[in-house]
Simulated assay, not measured.
Amino acid sequence: MMGGATPPAPLRPLVSRSWTRVLGFGLDPTHANARDPLPWAEVERRRHHSPLALVIDEIRAVLTSVADASRFIVVVTDADGIILWREGSAGVLRKADGLGFTEGATWTEDHVGTNAIGTALAEQAPVQLFSAEHFEEGQHPWYCTASPVHDPRTGALLGVVDVSGPALTLHPALIALVDTATKLAEARLWRHHEQSLQRLRRSAEHVLATTTGPVLLVDDDGWVAHYSGVLVRDRIAAPRADLPLTVPGLGLCLPERLGEGWLVRPDERGTSLTARLVSVGGEAVLEVAGTPDGDAGWRVSLTPRHAAVLRLLAAAGTEGMSAAALSRALFGDEEHQVTVRAEVSRLRRVVGALVAAAPYRVAEGVRLTCDP
């Protein structure tokens, strides 16, 4: 136990891992640590920008209808562990106020110790904690059941749904209830995504009807709303203004902004893109020339590692390099393939997919030269 005594029963591995993390933060288990509540205006701003605002009504429908009868409260946080929404039993809400369990408060492990919200964020998994499994003694009269909510499109963590109440009122069905609420929220988010693509498709109907040849219509994240003349997966690399994009089956494309989305089609001018890797004041810079039709060129600074990758791919030519080959060239062995894949992924976000994958290579339609 935190006071040094032997616990009456062995700690669950999840609780042991959390206590180990929390002890490293220097928190005090005998009193409430800082919750750092945000101003109400910032809470409102976060609510407005949170994707969970789209599904908060569905979460309420599942959980709060029985909150008063069951004596618990429902709490929804963002990915930073900041409480954005909270409602439920009036009596339990008053007790939560005294604990600092309020809107705007931060309930991550490094702020308030082991708790279902913070531990669910740390473990990226559903968590239920009971009584003295909490780090702070003030939380011992409570139980908490929490589950992360993820973006069904990308897998990104959006926040946590939590149910909390007096420890003696814990009902075993609450785990299933919270799990149902999070699954419903993720399903509704996917439906909102589909509806957004439908709206984008309708808004672009007049342009698509007069467009010939292969074409894609995608949203800002690269999700495909419409395709014609080319077989694609559900998603391509996210388009960016004035940055070239390579799409399997289309080759080199220059995305065009269309309403709230992007029109992606092959460069009809048939011109190649010329890029040059140079050193400016000791810094690696990639310079991409403009097109003969007057499109402006652009330049971007690169990290030494990204510059090294580009030089290797330029030397490899059309055959390209595998992750294993890049690992050998960069690190002297094949044990760093995960690192290589992550670095190339970051590089492609910077240079607008001038680098193609499978194998890694300079994309078709791009002529890259590297100064000594």
Rank of each mutant, 00 (worst) to 15 (best):
A176S: 13
L157W: 13
F135Y: 13
G81W: 09
R86N: 04
D110M: 02
T180P: 12
P152Y: 10
G91E: 00
A116I: 03
W142V: 02
P166M: 05
A132Q: 12
Y143E: 08
A105D: 08
S131E: 06
E186Q: 13
D97E: 13
L157N: 05
A185W: 04
A105F: 13
T108E: 06
D110F: 01
V112I: 11
G165Q: 01
W190T: 11
G113D: 00
A156H: 02
C144P: 03
H134L: 09
G98D: 04
E186K: 05
H140L: 00
G91Y: 06
E123V: 12
F101N: 01
G138V: 05
H111V: 05
G165H: 07
V160G: 14
S131Q: 13
E87P: 00
G88W: 04
H171W: 12
D179P: 09
K95V: 07
T145M: 06
V178N: 03
H134P: 08
Y143F: 15
K95M: 08
E137D: 12
V149M: 04
A173E: 13
L177Q: 13
R153S: 09
D97G: 13
V178E: 00
R86W: 03
L93H: 06
I117H: 10
D151Q: 06
V163C: 04
P172K: 08
I175Y: 15
I175N: 13
A146M: 14
L84D: 06
A173K: 15
E136N: 04
L84H: 09
W107G: 02
R94P: 00
D179R: 15
L93R: 10
Y143Q: 10
E109S: 05
T180H: 06
L121C: 03
W107S: 09
I83R: 06
V112Y: 11
H171E: 15
S131W: 04
P141W: 01
P152L: 07
D179M: 08
L121D: 04
T108G: 10
S164P: 06
E136M: 02
E136C: 01
R153M: 12
A146K: 06
P141A: 03
R188Q: 15
D179C: 05
G91C: 01
R153W: 03
L158V: 10
H150P: 02
A96K: 00
L99M: 10
A116N: 03
A187Y: 14
H171V: 15
R86V: 06
E133Y: 14
D151C: 11
R188S: 15
D110W: 00
E136G: 02
L157C: 13
A116K: 07
L170C: 06
G104Y: 04
G104A: 02
A185T: 10
I83W: 09
G91H: 03
Y143N: 07
L170T: 04
A96Q: 02
T169N: 09
R153Q: 10
L174S: 13
R188T: 14
A120P: 03
T106Q: 12
A90V: 00
T169L: 14
L93M: 12
K183R: 14
Y143G: 11
A132M: 07
R191H: 12
L129V: 10
H171C: 15
Y143C: 01
F101P: 04
T180R: 14
I83E: 01
A132W: 09
P172S: 15
R86C: 06
Y143R: 09
A90H: 10
Q128P: 05
G165F: 04
G155W: 05
